[in-house]
């Protein structure tokens, strides 16, 4: 429970923690969502993200920009936020109870990233009224290189941290 809360807090803090690489700084929020799936597994990973979303929905300032409230869910990025829940479950499901393998971790996170885009882009289209091609161009394509880097970094971090984690 403490680790699940910790990853929920990391997901909240991840919106502010940015690494300046290239013209678009990399925000660490989905890196921590991927790590929650890899290190906590599907059940506790999903619990962690669900509590994070609940905290945001009831108004705690855990979403990007230090705000919370149902407004962020109804806004253009709401699909990406809600998408974290199936993503963490999928990443956890694909990697838990199996021998640790970097290739499997990367494949699971790549599947998770695709699922996140599948949740986020249509929501962005609905919230803004723009065509799907524009929503993909604005909400998916600019983030592909950053997400590839995050997946690679998360695989390295997960490999190093697994011995430290004592999940029930």
């Amino acid at each position: 429970m403490v680790l699940a809360s910790l990853f929920a807090a990391l997901t909240a803090a991840g919106a502010y923690l940015a690494i300046p690489i290239g013209p678009v700084p990399i925000v660490l929020q989905n890196l921590f969502v991927f790590l929650a799936g890899l290190l906590l597994g599907s059940r506790w990973g999903a619990a962690s993200v669900a509590v994070y979303l609940l905290a945001g929905i009831v108004g705690l300032p855990v979403f990007a920009g230090g705000t919370g409230g149902i407004g962020r869910i109804a806004g253009p990025t709401g699909g990406f936020l809600l998408g974290y829940l199936p993503v963490v479950f999928l990443v956890g499901r694909l990697t838990e109870r199996r021998p640790a393998s970097g290739a499997r971790d990367v494949a699971a996170m790549a599947a998770g990233a695709l699922l996140l885009y599948a949740c986020g882009a249509p929501w962005l289209k609905l919230a803004t009224g723009m065509p799907l091609s524009q929503a993909l161009a604005l909400g998916v394509l600019p983030f592909l290189p950053g997400d590839a880097l995050k997946i690679a970094a998360a695989a390295v971090i997960a490999k190093s941290l697994r011995p430290l984690m004592r999940m029930p």
């Binding site: 403490v2 680790l3 809360s5 910790l6 990391l10 923690l17 690494i19 690489i21 290239g22 990399i26 660490l28 890196l31 790590l35 880097l149 995050k150 690679a152 970094a153 998360a154 390295v156 971090i157 190093s160 941290l161 430290l164 984690m165 004592r166």
Partner: peptide, 27 residues
């Protein structure tokens, strides 16, 4: 860039996980 992400993320998450471990023990 992967090295920069990992060298920032790894010690950060490691330290925080250890502090969560200490908190769990204290609880």
């Amino acid at each position: 860039p992967v090295g920069r992400l990992a060298t920032f993320g790894l010690p950060l998450v490691r330290r925080i996980v250890l502090s969560a471990d200490r908190l769990a023990l204290a609880m």
